[in-house]
Amino acid sequence: MAETSGNGKVIRVEVLRYRPEQDEEPFLQGYDVPFTDDMSVLQGLQYIKDWLDGTLSFRWSCRMAICGSCGMMIDGEPRLACKTFLRDFPAGTVRVEALAHFPIERDLVIRMDDFLAKLERIKPYIIPKEERTLAQGEYLQTPAQLDVYEQFSSCINCLLCYAACPQYGLNPDFVGPGIMALLHRYNADSRDGAAVERMEIAGSEAGVFNCTAVGYCSEVCPKHVDPANAVNQNKTRAAGDYFLRLVRPKGGAK
């Protein structure tokens, strides 16, 4: 790979390795990677896999911060490897580890079963308030109605917010920041009619009240989603539901 070793710069990449069939526990392994200023951490890992050590495992796909596959801890911070550049580690060394708070499947690959199970439960799709036939045409929405939820729809399920959330780390039953952002994305959509159903999850013991308003989730989001805001809005709404069910005539209460 002559073109990447052209300018003679080399960075030491410390990678957390774990191969369950042969390693007792995860350990750091260092590689010297020649790089140019336009190379991402992901490209550094690809260099390792192609030229130094073919046994290294990591997830990636799009290389452009939209697939959400390459989330990892880079020097202790949850980041996308494709959106983080090797030139930004002037000390000449960078540590790359599997995302915090998740079980490691192998090397930098984590198990996301917990997140996927939660994602299914919130029904992350529009359940129309009123069914329309084809003849009735499309579901219309004003720009103002779009503004209410649009930022939350940018979530790419990369799980950086989960690695950032100390409460998820302490209690993995907590539905967590990403799920709350997605739940809010559908609840806040003017075309959707399933908010009551989803609020059962937001207001449950696994729901929003596990959050202690740390806000790091919103800081690490590579797509500028604000999960902390989604959680806060739903704390208010869940508290409203909790008290209002006592005065509502019937239904509602559970």
Partner: peptide, 11 residues
């Protein structure tokens, strides 16, 4: 993952 249906008294 535990069932998450019990309403929280946190409010």
């Amino acid at each position: 993952m535990k069932p998450i249906n019990r309403r929280s008294n946190a409010p």
